[in-house]
Simulated scan of single mutants.
Amino acid sequence: MDHSIQFVEATSLKQKPSSEELGFGRFFSDYMFEMDYSAEAGWHDPRIVPYHPLTLEPSSMVFHYGQAIFEGLKAYKTKDGHIQLFRPTKNITRLNKSCERLCIPKVDEELMLKAFKELISIEKDWVPNGDGTSLYLRPFIIATEPYLGVRPAREYKLLIILSPVGAYYGDQLAPVKIYVEEHYVRAVLGGVGHVKTAGNYAASLKAQEDASAKGYAQILWLDAKENKYVEEVGSMNIFFKINGEVVTPQLNGSILDGVTRDSVIDLLKHWNVPVRETRISIKEVFEAHARGELEEVFGSGTAAVISPVGELNWNGDIITVGDQKIGPLSQRLYDAITGIQTGKVADPFDWTLDVTSVKVY
């Protein structure tokens, strides 16, 4: 397809928030990327336009049958003023995996990368430079065909919106409390747990609400079949450091293949830290704690990067981890990943993509 992207200039621009008031996902930049799909024309009319409300038919299929997928990645301002993305091609590849599972037409990966670059180039002043801040990119696709009937839609819209963000959990490295969910399940083998579709998150809200009422920041999901094997946290993959070895649940078709998860595993191997992807039960985790071998627990994800876990509650049995302080390995991983993202440390993996020099329009 034609990779040229149309640009429509805004008549006025927003006032940008300060780094101190950002939070997460509260503010949105002046422009967004938009592209449409029809069965006749395929993906067409890629454009960067002023951020605006969408007008959809009430019969649009996304409202009734849930064809909606998304991704999340970040742009960072480096110490020398450059702007760089972190592993954007991984997110684009995963977006197309979600497309395949949800029967949505795949997108051209070169065009998506170009859209990221050009949108950030236009919105470069929206990339914050405070500690722990970044510009969050949210690409997503929804089914827009006006039709009531259970089948894949024949019309879609792809959008990319931008949001300057701070730390996901406020005090980024303060250990969070996690509630092990035994009643509700997040995903099943053969389902859609391994892709980023909106329904996965809608299904998690009730359990998350219940956990929040008990004072817990997140849910730790167990497998749907035996209700005993650890899968992932609501917004993160999960890691356990047990007797010197780092263990994380293996990808099994119901766990999201996290970009930060993959980065953590690569870093641990690079440092010669033992790491294993395997099936691990919540009972094994609690038994390791009873033996004094559970050294650290931490989550990984685009939003939080590395989030240490200080407490686990499994059916009323509560354990604390690392005196509810961040562990040395969690800190090292956080420093390494954020250091690479912001250009403070060397990138031995070629993970970052400098978009500073992109010239458009």
Rank of each mutant, 00 (worst) to 15 (best):
A288F: 06
K283G: 09
A143Y: 00
N129C: 09
N272W: 03
C99W: 02
S263Q: 06
E284L: 00
D80L: 09
L135T: 02
N272G: 00
K325M: 02
S263C: 15
I5M: 01
E145N: 04
D125Y: 07
F24S: 06
F116Q: 06
I69A: 09
P249E: 14
I306S: 07
A187L: 07
V195R: 08
E181A: 11
Q172K: 12
P146V: 14
I306K: 02
G23L: 00
V185Q: 02
D45I: 00
A217P: 00
Q331P: 01
K77C: 06
G66L: 01
P175W: 08
M61V: 05
L95V: 09
I141E: 05
S29K: 00
T93E: 15
H64V: 09
Q218E: 15
A202Q: 07
R276H: 13
T352E: 03
G301K: 04
K206G: 07
P152Q: 01
Y136T: 05
V309Y: 02
V309T: 07
G23H: 04
R261Q: 09
A143G: 15
V176Y: 03
L222T: 02
I69F: 09
E245I: 13
G310A: 11
N91D: 11
Q341C: 13
V360I: 15
K74H: 06
Q15W: 08
D335W: 06
L353Y: 11
E296R: 01
I282R: 04
E20H: 14
F7S: 03
T352Q: 03
A213C: 05
H289Y: 11
G66D: 01
R154S: 15
V150E: 08
E181S: 10
W351C: 12
F28D: 03
Y216P: 11
K177R: 15
S12L: 07
P17G: 11
K124I: 01
G327S: 09
S59V: 12
G191D: 01
N96T: 07
K283E: 05
Q208P: 00
I326Y: 03
S263E: 09
I280P: 00
E284G: 02
P146R: 14
H183M: 11
K325H: 13
E232S: 09
T342V: 02
W221V: 01
P46F: 13
K74E: 02
D223S: 10
Y136H: 09
P139N: 05
I122N: 00
I337C: 04
G132T: 05
H64Y: 14
V259F: 02
Y229F: 14
A211E: 10
T144A: 08
E277L: 14
K74V: 00
Y361C: 10
E57L: 13
E293M: 08
A153F: 06
Y76V: 05
G316K: 07
E57W: 08
R186I: 03
T11E: 14
S300R: 03
L329V: 07
D347E: 09
V188I: 11
K241Q: 13
I160H: 01
G234H: 00
I326A: 13
A202E: 08
D36C: 13
A346F: 12
L13D: 03
F28S: 07
K325P: 04
Y334V: 01
I122D: 01
T133K: 04
L294H: 11
A68S: 15
E40G: 07
Q341H: 13
V360R: 13
A213T: 08
A303S: 15
P46M: 09
Y334T: 02
Y168Q: 03
I340F: 08
D171H: 11
T89V: 14
T320H: 15
I219F: 11
L173P: 01
G166A: 02
